[in-house]
Design a protein around this nucleic acid. Structure first.
Length: 269
DNA sequence: CAGAGCTCCTGAATGC
DNA sequence: TGCATTCAGGAGCTCT
């Protein structure tokens, strides 16, 4: 499931092939995603140059001459390079293709249809972008920032760090891992989390994300050479999906806002 | 406003 | 073997 590191990996993987290239055509095979793909996109992006490709939170942003494409991978979205020969075999879950003038073809596949693509003139005002919190790897995001957001809040700390309006890019897995590393229980109420703990938590979030980006980088090669095989990096997770903590205690799994939340009742307070 | 729960979707895993 | 049920999860939306 794509969280920030996976999106970063994808952006890195497609950056070289797309930057400064021109879109030849955009083909919609199946417009049904989280939001229906706007039928105007093929016309609007035709012959446009891709000036820049970058990540904002979990969104992939393609900056074109006069607007932006905002791509979200949802849960199961995959962008792969395909060859001319693959054009004949359109899979059940293939949704759209971007054909560049130089014959490079990108195809978007999404089994669960939680992903999306939007065309927008003004990025900052778009509803998916305008309320996003700071990037977790930025200086702005630190213990003090977190502590301020925690004040007077009754919700669980795990909900807070997964809230994209507070900080972007932290999904369920990394939230669990970061809380484990900073010895805080996922259901601890925000208002009871101390500044010291917020410090630890902010550091842990940066740590797990950086580590994953690094190991995501190793799948970058696979991503390209294997021609689209999903490059989910396999990282050793300390707590998510584990049965037993490194301390020997049984790992607990509770539901928070419908999400599986793994923690160790001994190591986390 | 804050926060909990619902919802979209499909395939894998589990139950009888 | 096979049908039915449960679950996973990003995040906007609805309701309290």
């Amino acid at each position: 499931m794509p969280e920030l590191p996976e999106v970063e990996t994808v952006v890195n993987a497609i950056n070289k092939s797309l930057k400064s290239m021109t879109i030849g055509k955009f083909i919609i095979m199946n417009s049904k995603l989280r939001w229906d793909i706007n039928k105007n996109i093929p016309d609007v992006v035709k012959n446009k140059n891709i000036q820049n490709i970058y990540r904002r939170g979990k969104h992939i942003i393609l900056r074109l001459d006069d607007g932006y494409l905002i791509i979200h991978l949802g849960m199961t979205g995959i962008i792969k390079f395909i060859g001319q020969m693959d054009l004949n075999s359109i899979g059940k879950h293939d949704h759209y293709e971007i054909h560049l003038k130089d014959k490079t073809i990108l195809r978007y596949n999404d089994v669960r249809k939680f992903g999306s693509i939007h065309w927008v003139k003004n990025l900052k005002d778009h509803f998916l972008i305008k309320n996003l919190g700071p990037e977790p790897l930025s200086q702005e995001f630190d213990g003090e920032y977190l502590k301020n957001k925690c004040r007077n809040r009754n919700t669980a700390i795990k909900n807070l760090i997964m809230n994209q309006n507070i900080v972007v890019g932290v999904g369920n897995i990394y939230a669990c891992e970061a809380l484990f590393l900073s010895s805080i229980r996922p259901h601890r109420k925000c208002k009871y989390v101390t500044l010291k703990q917020c410090d630890e938590l902010a550091k842990s979030i940066k740590f797990v994300l950086k580590k994953s980006i690094k190991s995501g980088g190793t799948t970058l090669k696979d991503f390209k050479t294997l021609d689209g095989t999903p490059g989910y990096f396999k990282q050793k997770l300390m707590i998510y999906g584990c049965d037993i903590c490194k301390c020997g205690t049984m790992v607990k799994n509770i539901k928070l806002s419908g999400r599986s939340s793994f923690y160790c009742s001994i190591c986390q307070k």
